[in-house]
Simulated assay, not measured.
Amino acid sequence: MRVERLSRDKIRFFLSLDDLMERGIEKEDMWRDIPKVHELFNDMMDQAYRELGFEISGPVAVEVFALPAQGMVVVVTRGRTPHPADLDELEGDDMYELEVTLEESDQVVFQFHDFEDLVQAAVSVRHLLGAGGRVYAYRDRYFLVLDTDMELNTLQQGIAVLTEFGEPSTMTEHVLAEYGKTIWNEDAIGRIIHYFS
């Protein structure tokens, strides 16, 4: 489980499939008001406090984005800090109120530290995933965005191969397109192989 600060009142967690499996949590469980989900959220908040000094009380908005064959991204946004008199009424597990929304992504995004890693990844997954995809450069990294309209087993094999060269990213294509530089907006894997291998 990785956590990063997005702003003063917003943090983002990346939960891998292993993180969820260790706790016996399925994607659908994130909607349910069950003890293991509360325990996961408490663990997340403990980690956010230890690593980032991020503390919550009062209302909290939680956005859950399911990433195909990778896990989940959870964005936690702090609401207003309650008045000290209101804190007297809140006890234990009631120290925060959750508002949860769940979205499922139909894309896989991988980041690569250098261009050569991206080239090697493209060569290795071409036979599995075809010539598609889009590539962006952002913050000294390269990002490969793939649509997931393929058989789940093929997608999982492709992700396993990509993981040898890069790592899954919580970055959305909207952010990459707006703030990054578009290298290829279609057929990225095919073009990388055509020009660089």
Results as ranks from 00 to 15, higher is better:
82 P>V: 11
132 G>E: 04
138 Y>L: 15
54 F>V: 10
83 H>C: 06
13 F>D: 03
131 A>C: 00
36 K>R: 09
20 L>D: 02
104 E>T: 15
132 G>K: 00
50 R>V: 10
32 R>N: 10
93 D>A: 12
83 H>M: 06
84 P>C: 04
73 V>L: 05
39 E>Q: 04
118 L>P: 09
105 S>L: 14
24 G>S: 01
124 S>I: 06
90 L>K: 13
136 Y>N: 10
74 V>W: 02
109 V>Q: 07
142 Y>N: 11
132 G>S: 02
95 M>C: 11
67 L>E: 13
25 I>M: 00
138 Y>N: 03
78 R>C: 04
125 V>C: 07
51 E>F: 12
43 D>T: 06
70 Q>E: 14
112 F>N: 14
87 L>N: 00
95 M>A: 12
14 F>C: 07
34 I>P: 02
128 L>C: 02
33 D>S: 10
47 Q>G: 01
68 P>D: 08
21 M>N: 09
139 R>H: 14
65 F>S: 08
103 E>G: 09
102 L>F: 15
83 H>D: 15
65 F>T: 12
103 E>C: 06
50 R>W: 07
65 F>G: 08
23 R>F: 02
48 A>G: 05
60 V>F: 07
56 I>H: 11
95 M>D: 04
53 G>E: 06
81 T>W: 13
109 V>S: 11
126 R>C: 03
86 D>F: 10
48 A>D: 01
69 A>P: 06
16 S>F: 12
82 P>L: 09
40 L>E: 03
21 M>C: 01
76 V>G: 01
129 L>P: 11
45 M>H: 05
132 G>D: 01
75 V>A: 03
17 L>I: 12
24 G>N: 08
71 G>F: 13
86 D>V: 10
